[in-house]
Computed example of a mutant assay.
Amino acid sequence: MSHYDDEQQAEVVKKWFLENWLALVAGLAIGLGAIFGWQGWQSIKQEKSAEASRMYEEARQALDSGDIEEASALAAKLSDDYSGTPYDDQVALLLARYHVDQGELPAAAEQLRSVVDGNADEPLKQVARLRLARVLWAQDQTEEALAELDAGGSGEFVSLFEELRGDIMLTQGDRAAARQAYQKAIEAGNEAAANRELLQQKLDDLADVVNS
């Protein structure tokens, strides 16, 4: 390639740069802005999660000491300002357990309902729904409890949902439906599950209704 060709090529590059430098600079700025913007957003999310974690721990300690007012205030703040974190739902479960221990079942059901109807991930929702069904059953709201069991129970939770259904049906005097539910629970459960032996015992106790 001649010296003239080199100079001509250099002129072409120079001309192209002069015509496009603004777009290049803008593109670079946008790219850097996106990088730093993403990093900033991640930092904010981490800080928010850390603060929510701290408040959850404070609420747990307040409940351990019996300070329901402080725990409720922290729960309300988590719900208002940190609803995008898992700690909002976790503290609701803590409050529900506290209310159950105090015999305050309607208050417990309200906390559990907030998790079921909220933005929690599906496994946590199923935990809350199962507990809600138990609380409703304890209040003699049998139909409502069964409706919760009908609405949930997938994956690893099927066994637990069906076992509770069997317990409810047994207290209603429907031994055939109870056995059917226990059988489903056995089939859906893990052979190493902690409730496996008890489930089998419940099923064996209803052996007389197999052919009914």
Rank of each mutant, 00 (worst) to 15 (best):
L198E: 04
Q201C: 06
T85V: 01
V12R: 11
S159E: 00
Q172E: 15
P123R: 08
H99F: 15
G189V: 03
S83M: 04
A26M: 13
R196V: 03
I186R: 01
A76F: 07
N190S: 14
V158P: 01
L32H: 07
Q111L: 06
Q9P: 06
S53V: 03
K15S: 09
L170C: 05
W38T: 13
Q61K: 15
V25T: 12
F36Y: 14
I30P: 08
E104M: 09
L198N: 04
R54G: 04
K184I: 01
R134I: 05
W41K: 13
A120H: 01
G33W: 11
A71Q: 04
A145P: 05
A23N: 04
Y87H: 07
E148W: 03
E104K: 11
L28P: 04
L18T: 13
A52S: 08
I30Y: 07
K14P: 03
T171R: 15
A92W: 02
Q180P: 03
S49E: 06
D117T: 14
Q201K: 09
I168D: 02
D88L: 00
A181E: 00
V127A: 06
F157K: 03
I30T: 09
A26L: 15
S43T: 14
G37W: 12
Q46R: 12
G33D: 08
K15P: 11
F36E: 10
E162H: 00
R129V: 02
Y87F: 13
N20Q: 05
E156P: 05
I186N: 01
G27V: 08
S65P: 05
V209H: 11
F157N: 04
A207C: 07
V127M: 08
R196G: 02
R97E: 11
N195Y: 11
K48I: 04
V91N: 03
S154M: 07
L136T: 03
L170A: 15
M55S: 09
L74I: 15
Q111F: 07
S79H: 14
K184H: 02
P86Q: 06
R113V: 12
Q9E: 15
A128P: 10
W38F: 13
E110A: 14
A138L: 12
H99N: 13
E156C: 07
D174S: 13
Q39M: 11
A207S: 15
I168G: 02
L24P: 09
A192V: 08
L94N: 05
E19W: 03
P106A: 10
D88Y: 00
Q8S: 08
L198M: 06
L22H: 04
L112T: 08
L149M: 04
E148N: 09
E191G: 14
G37D: 14
V116R: 02
W16E: 05
S65G: 08
A34F: 13
P123N: 08
V13K: 05
L199P: 01
L164T: 00
